[in-house]
Amino acid sequence: MQAFDYVAPKSLSEAVSLLEQKGERARILSGGTDLIVQVRENRRDLDLIVDGKKIAELMELSFDSQSGLTLGACVPCVRFYEDARISQLYPGLNDAALLIGGTQIQNRASFGGNLCNSSPAADSIPALIAHSAVCLIAGSGGTHTVAVEDFCTGPGRNVLGPKELLVSFHIPPPPKHFGAHYLRFIPRNEMDIAVVGCGASLEMESDLRTVKKARVSLGAVAPTPLLVAEAAAELEGRELDGGAIEKAAAAARAAARPITDMRGTEEYRVHLAGVLTRRALEKSLERAKEE
């Protein structure tokens, strides 16, 4: 492995100034489950690793009934799903937290790290999109926000400038009659990268049949995770029956433009995009009704 320096700053400003000095030669370390492996396998070249886990803002996990959820970029999955209240309020995120890697990975890996790694197949990104999460980004010029669906720009690429870092995610409190779900298809039952992933959320009218608002997102079918607006358009304002779900699934298949690789063929991934969209919507509805 190449040599690099390691620093664990205690404040956001310290981290920002380190990034300012090193630019693209520095990288924030969260759980390290991707970053350390990439550096070891010569897939990423670095001079400095900045451990984000001692910075309070990056480790914050809190919920406020007015402002909603604040999820620090370095909070490991285990803290999310072991928080009984938060995990129940954001079920799609909870699904993702419970799916990423095995136990050992979930004890380290974070939503923020997963997003910044910007893999098209990342499990947390479609879930974050389904939950309408917004990123808070800090740099020397202050902070700004970006919707998660606008964050990734290609495989391993995103909107973060060389001197910027992801601080946290912000998600509004869930509305009434809300349900969400993330699922993925993998050949085994754990420890695989998604062949296709799908996140969905539904806000239902009080009749619990009509869709007020819907979001459908897909992973591993394009260079970036996708928000499939066409699928939502097939649902909003309509009764959520088998026909509507099938139309949304067809929209998801149409939006998918995957590649063939060792994890699946193009044809199979398009097929799965439809299957998973259907299942994600059915489970979201079930959850909206339970709530």
Partner: peptide, 8 residues
Amino acid sequence: IVLGAEID
């Protein structure tokens, strides 16, 4: 996939 330096 933990750095030795992280366990301080």
